[in-house]
Design a protein around this nucleic acid. Structure first.
Lengths: 341, 341
DNA sequence: TGGACAATTTAAAACGTTATAAATACCCGC
DNA sequence: GCGGGTATTTATAACGTTTTAAATTGTCCA
């Protein structure tokens, strides 16, 4: 039998290890590593050297237990965010902001859309995270209310109508809808339609407002479908479009708040024999490279979700750090006039 | 001045709280809650009642510190998974499997594709998680080797060629490519092409094998592009297709391993004036509802990534629990013969 | 009645860190 | 060479849980 291979299962170094190695007390080592002021420069240097050498990394559990801070940021994921990498782009941006910090990103997918107040309560009550991130906010979003009441750090993707200001990073959907609609009209379309997210969400109002402003300025007819929204299954949007195209006074321009709805519109219209660019036009919000790949080309206005995520991370970190002066409300403008891709 | 509102900041109940409430010792309470055998039924019942009543939840940090178990599953996310919700679908499935367990899902996006061995080492060495999940495996994937060597629980999406078996959940890409190619040939195409993932990945070989088998069986010509792969930017695939279409002996059928490459192929061919269904055909792998929405319809074979994620979660949990008998290698078959959507 | 044994409960220690408070070393002027 | 400070280091306790070992109770039989 071969001599037993004592792999020793790699014992993790702790503060104690460094203390033994340097001759200092555990407390001193802890202080030296956290750059506490009363440690002499020499000691600090020595301790940090040894720590680096043996690859010391503080135990998250112990730190969390002692300090009460979890070093965790939690993202609430709505089932509707599954589509087209919305969530992943956002998370990538978030991860970018959290890189080189001690924060980890945990995700909590929701299985029922919109009903995630329980998840929020759970996180707040049980201190599962130091900060929370979510989207699809409503004007008086109960999640926001709960978090504000408890002084729990968070950032929303989307605004609310609470009087108490809270951190958010949002896209200027008014400008998007305004610009999209103006472009449709500029192309000679005389009856634009906008496909909105469910009415309960704040940004639905913003989009509507932008749309209506453009429509009124131009004095053209318009239409807003009440049977469909951006959360509908694609088939439903497609069927609706096909049906509507066959009825009188059909719209000839579409402002689409999402890429999927743009696709569904194209196929629906196509089912009815209508061609993009000929009988109708679309201006859609673009969040991926998807729409640039289909023919005929759909005109788009870009929303950078990775950047959004990164900004959200930045704002949240400042918030957690208690930095009152840091900017906490970010409104990202669409690149108006930027050449459509 | 109004009487101070003593919100009391909601003190979290601990085992101590329950101990005081019931008169038992902390140890007894701990035992009763974990259904330890030596606790009397009566005590157990009483303790659990009180715990439920006050909404007790064990402190994760303390548990983790004491037991060494993190109750965390970590997902490594490759930048290429950003596209089309691949990652989100998988994570949704994972979350489904982890629901009603004490496990949390943390994500670690990689910023450099493929080079995530460091992340793995970091997680193993510092015990950041109880289990690991990742995809895009290579035949002799160093991550797998490292994890096997350290006896660290993990599940891959994709197989390897190590002799030591390890847990995986994979899609039968041989069958997919075989079937896709057969369909192209059945439609009368005489020179199929397959767009493969980068060669270093295991499933690239599987796809190639399936493709070659179908091609040889039918005795037709074929082509495999070496300038492009599934990870290329869409523009590059598109340009390539457009260029290739103008050269002699151009392929007339495309087996696409991804939705994006199918789209890029369509646009590229279209740039050269060729129409899907007329001059050429495509059979693509479908992982979302995307392709069903474009015109003309692309024939697809489905891969259910949410199911994949759920299976991965299931396998990993059994693995962590040390269940040696549980199935640990799952090969998901494409729904051959199932009507294409 | 006491002792052996099982059933049940409990006390004490430990996981690795940080906070509090105390101790020690160092330096100055006299 | 000694008080009075400051600079630096240290011991101790605590966070909430689980584990180990010990204590208590009850039961049964000699």
């Amino acid at each position: 039998m071969a001599p037993e291979q004592t792999t020793a299962r790699h014992v993790r170094p702790t503060l104690r290890t460094i203390a033994d190695l340097t001759g200092f007390a555990v407390t001193t080592v802890s202080r030296a590593l956290s750059n506490a002021p009363q440690i002499s420069a020499e000691t600090r240097k020595r301790v940090q050297e040894v720590a680096a050498e043996i690859g010391y990394l503080p135990d998250r559990a112990a730190q969390r237990l002692k300090t009460g801070r979890t070093n965790v940021i939690c993202v609430l994921l709505d089932p509707h965010e599954e589509i087209l990498g919305y969530g992943i782009s956002l998370m990538h941006g978030l991860a970018k902001a959290l890189r080189d910090t001690s924060y980890h990103l945990i995700v909590m997918p929701n299985f029922i859309s919109g009903a995630n107040i329980d998840a929020v309560r759970h996180i707040v009550r049980n201190g599962m995270a130091d900060g929370l991130i979510f989207s699809r906010t409503e004007p008086f979003d109960p999640r926001v209310r709960l978090l504000l009441e408890n002084g729990f750090p968070f950032v929303t993707h989307g605004r609310t109508e609470f009087t108490t200001p809270h951190p958010y990073v949002d896209y200027d959907n008014f400008s998007f809808a305004y610009e999209a609609t103006k472009r449709l009209i500029a192309r000679g379309r005389r009856k634009p339609m906008i496909i909105l997210p469910p009415k309960r969400m704040t940004f639905s109002q913003h989009l509507l407002h932008g749309f209506m402003t453009a429509v009124r300025e131009a004095g053209v007819a318009y239409e807003i479908p009440d049977e469909i929204d951006l959360d509908c299954p694609v088939e439903q949007i497609r069927d609706y479009m096909s049906r509507r195209a066959g009825q009188p006074d059909a719209p000839d321009g579409f402002a689409c708040g999402g890429e999927v709805s743009a696709l569904a519109t194209i196929t629906g219209m196509s089912d009815h024999g209508l061609t993009l660019g000929l009988e109708y036009d679309i201006v859609a919000k673009r969040t991926s490279k998807l729409l640039s790949q289909i023919q005929p080309k759909v005109e788009t206005i870009y929303e950078d979700l990775t950047d959004t995520g990164e900004q959200m991370g930045r704002v949240l970190l400042a918030r957690i750090a208690g930095d009152e002066t840091a900017e906490m409300q970010v409104l990202l403008r669409p690149q108006i006039g930027f050449p459509a891709v």
